[in-house]
Nucleic acid binder design. Structure first.
Length: 468
DNA sequence: TCTGGGGTCCTAGGACCC
DNA sequence: TCTGGGGTCCTAGGACCC
């Protein structure tokens, strides 16, 4: 009798899967006719997602090479030494909030001897790569989601071994890179994210938490506040609070169709993911960017066209180099300049979009178009604070349509730029650049507390004194 | 008197993320 | 004195086509 039921079950499950795969085909062909079905993505759905997140990543990177910072309050600042963008636990306990301008808490910093670092992307980027390489070895599929986070497909791990696997991963990352990480498991990305938050917030979880068939799910979801859920920001929170949806539990049991009416497909996916239905599969090659932005605030207010020309040319050069690195070309370029929105003086914000005659990734050409845009944008008599360039409509170089308007100098310039990129990559900075980028860099951002590039520049590598 | 209907593509802006 | 930077996806509406 028992075996019969067992067999029958298997049959039922197999039949269900078959139906599912058929639905899958139908959905792909009819998605356009029934867009409301588009939340269903039945291709490659892992059963168990893990989210690995580095704890206080930038601060942890600084700590690797300065063991004396252990148990001390540490913060890392944004570009231009403007805002707090990373905090050690000790700094969090001092009440230092994420994202606030550093001058607002100068008293707290002084009084508690908080260690302050300028942002050091060269270092963080390199450490990140090491962490991600290790993670790739430990899972069949991985999606690098940000500089300090990755989703793993751990469907092959038995549920009973999840916690142990999590602890092993933590140990390995710590041992090989010195970076502490936390891990959350869940049947969807949204739930893995939530589990990760719980892994971090409770000491007794020791950095690992699973929401895969968790028997206390109801109690746990009741405690998760609506704004703690991945994908819910200020506006959505306001909407949910108005409708009386305050916790993850409330949202799980909300009327899906009503949410869909008000928040569209994004809202509906939130509900489904919380219920355990995968709407966001693992995305394994998100690397090629669709647009590339380079923008900076200036260290000092800028008034002259010449300085703006230098600064924007430098930003364009960076963007062009990123384009070449991912083997892409851009069809369109956007340039913007703005005054300091916090200052009292007259304000000016403007942008200009240039459609280029043929797609390119050559610095010279892009600078040329940016300069045209800048001359049209520029107004005398303002104190400019920030400028930036965004190249968009990006396509792979080998798929680009050639045009009869293509400059005849392309090929020659291509080899020049190749050499420039090679030299600059080797020295780790802009050793070779275009004359218009200037040399003074009077506009350059402030970075008063920059740590050395321990892992990416020869002269910054630590020396160990064997005498002690 | 009376003026279609269905579709695609593009873009700007909004919302979110780290 | 001082207030970051770099992305993605979705949607509504306009332009355009037949």
């Amino acid at each position: 009798m028992v075996t019969k039921i067992g067999k029958r079950r298997t049959y039922v499950v197999a039949g269900f899967l078959k139906v599912l795969s058929e639905i899958n085909c139908i959905i792909f062909t009819t998605k356009k006719i029934f867009p409301y079905l588009s939340y269903l993505r039945l291709d490659q759905m892992p059963d168990i997602f893990a989210l690995v997140d580095c704890n206080n990543f930038y601060v942890s990177c600084e700590k690797i090479f300065k063991p004396g910072l252990e148990n001390k309050p540490v913060v890392v600042l944004s570009n231009n030494d403007g805002c707090i963008i990373a905090r050690s636990d000790e700094s969090k306990n001092l009440g230092i909030k994420m994202g606030i301008p550093v001058f607002e808490i100068s008293q707290i910093i002084k009084k508690n001897k908080v260690h302050v670092f300028s942002t050091n992307y060269a270092l963080y980027g390199d450490i990140s790569e090491r962490v991600m390489n290790l993670l790739s070895e430990m899972a069949p599929e991985i999606e690098i989601y940000s500089i300090d986070e990755a989703f793993l497909d751990l469907s092959h791990i038995p549920q009973t071994e999840l916690n142990e696997t999590g602890r092993k991963i933590i140990e390995k990352i710590k041992m090989f890179t010195g970076i502490p990480v936390s891990i959350g498991f869940g049947p969807t990305k949204t739930l893995a994210k939530a589990a990760n938050m719980l892994a971090k917030t409770s000491k007794k979880n020791q950095g690992v938490f699973s929401l895969v068939n968790n028997p206390d799910a109801e109690k746990i979801f009741n405690k998760i506040k609506i704004n703690e859920i991945w994908g819910i920001g200020e506006k959505y929170m306001a909407f949910f609070n108005r409708t009386g949806i305050m916790s993850a539990y409330d949202l799980q049991h909300a009327n899906e169709n009503r949410i869909r009416e008000r928040l569209g497909i994004v809202g509906q996916r939130l509900v489904l993911e919380l219920r355990g239905t995968v709407c966001y599969p693992l995305n394994q090659n998100p690397d090629v960017k669709k647009e590339i932005c380079t923008s900076r605030s200036f260290g000092h207010p800028v008034t002259s066209l010449e300085e703006l020309e230098e600064a924007t040319a430098s930003y364009v050069a960076k963007a062009a180099q990123k384009l070449r690195k991912q083997k892409s070309m851009a069809n369109s370029l956007m340039l913007f300049i703005m005054t300091n929105k916090y200052a009292k003086g007259p304000q000016y914000v403007n942008y200009r979009i240039v459609k280029m005659p043929s797609p390119t990734n050559q610095t010279q050409e892009l600078i040329h178009f940016a300069q045209i845009a800048l001359k049209r944008l520029f107004r005398k008599g303002y104190y400019y604070k920030k400028a930036g360039v965004i190249v968009s409509d990006v396509a792979p170089s080998n798929q680009v349509q050639t045009s009869i308007w293509e400059p005849s100098t392309r090929e020659k310039n291509q080899s020049i730029l190749k050499a420039v990129d090679a030299i600059n990559a080797k020295t780790g900075k802009e050793q070779v650049k275009f004359a218009i980028q200037g040399n003074e860099e009077t506009w350059k951002m402030r970075q008063h507390n920059l740590s050395p590039q321990y892992t990416t520049r020869w002269r910054d590598i630590l020396e160990v004194n064997m005498d002690h």
